[in-house]
Amino acid sequence: MNYAIETTGLHYRAGTTFELGDLDLRVPTGSIYGFLGPNGSGKTTTIRLCLGLLRAARGTIRVLGHAIPAETHRMFARVGYVPERPHLYPTLTVREALDYHGAFHPRWDAAGATGLLRTFGLAADTRINRLSKGENGKLLMLLALAQRPDLLVLDEPTDGLDPVVRRDVLMAVIEFVSESGATVFVSSHLVHELERICDWVGVMDRGRLVAEVPMHSFKNGIKRLRVRNAPAQAGDMPFVLLARERADGASGTEVWVVRGWQPTMHQYFEGIGAVLQDVVDLDLEEGFVELLRTARSPREG
């Protein structure tokens, strides 16, 4: 498999409180990779390291085959980046910002940019310091898309935007990907948002990558089971037990949250003398929360 972003043994420390430890991240080429994690988990730091905006203490980074940080400027000719905070020059108008950006990017699509201006409802003669937060977000996305990048890196692109703007922005990304086949690396803590568009997911917590799997396996593999009469020592399990709690209002019944579930695994419960009453699919957010719980206090079956 080819990777648009590949890090090996990446290590970074910021002060005494935050550390990114031995990060091995692999973003498959052509995927829409959702980079999940709670606030402060290291998503933005990882992105900045991958884009050469921060220097790692050790480890290697390759983005679209370019070694980072040595080939950062060559990489940026092929990467569109929407940062967490707006950073455009406030004295320029929207049109001037497009012209400025286009002057630097060899694959700039001027006609596409004008089309996106209309799609996003942005007035070309508005000064950037007069734009609302939503308009700023749309302009940043427009600039990144009109570069016709091979890789789009989006750091919380819809954070703080209203639902209408958020939908516009995500639709533009989906349309771009369907046309170009580009890779998208998108970080967010809005799990539901990523669930709709991503085909790969990586989960960060406290500076570590706790999961990196295809979205379908992440979503389908995490289940909530309702189990009756389960023994305290449940033996070797064919799945990963993420959480085990007593169910409300029913003695002897427990709720198990498991990963890696397959339908054939119900036989396991017969083997330990328990009864599997129900199997419930968890959505990405529930799975994400359970995964973080496990990562923070691993349980043994």
């Binding site: 884009l51 050469g52 905006l53 950062t72 400027h73 060559r74 990489m75 940026f76 000719a77 990467v79 980046y81 940062p83 905070r85 707006p86 950073h87 455009l88 020059y89 406030p90 004295t91 630097f104 990017h105 060899p106």
Partner: peptide, 18 residues
Amino acid sequence: SADHQGDHVYALTLPVPR
């Protein structure tokens, strides 16, 4: 001044050597 305000992110992400 504008680059300072944006922590130089925009300038550093342009495809030209620094």
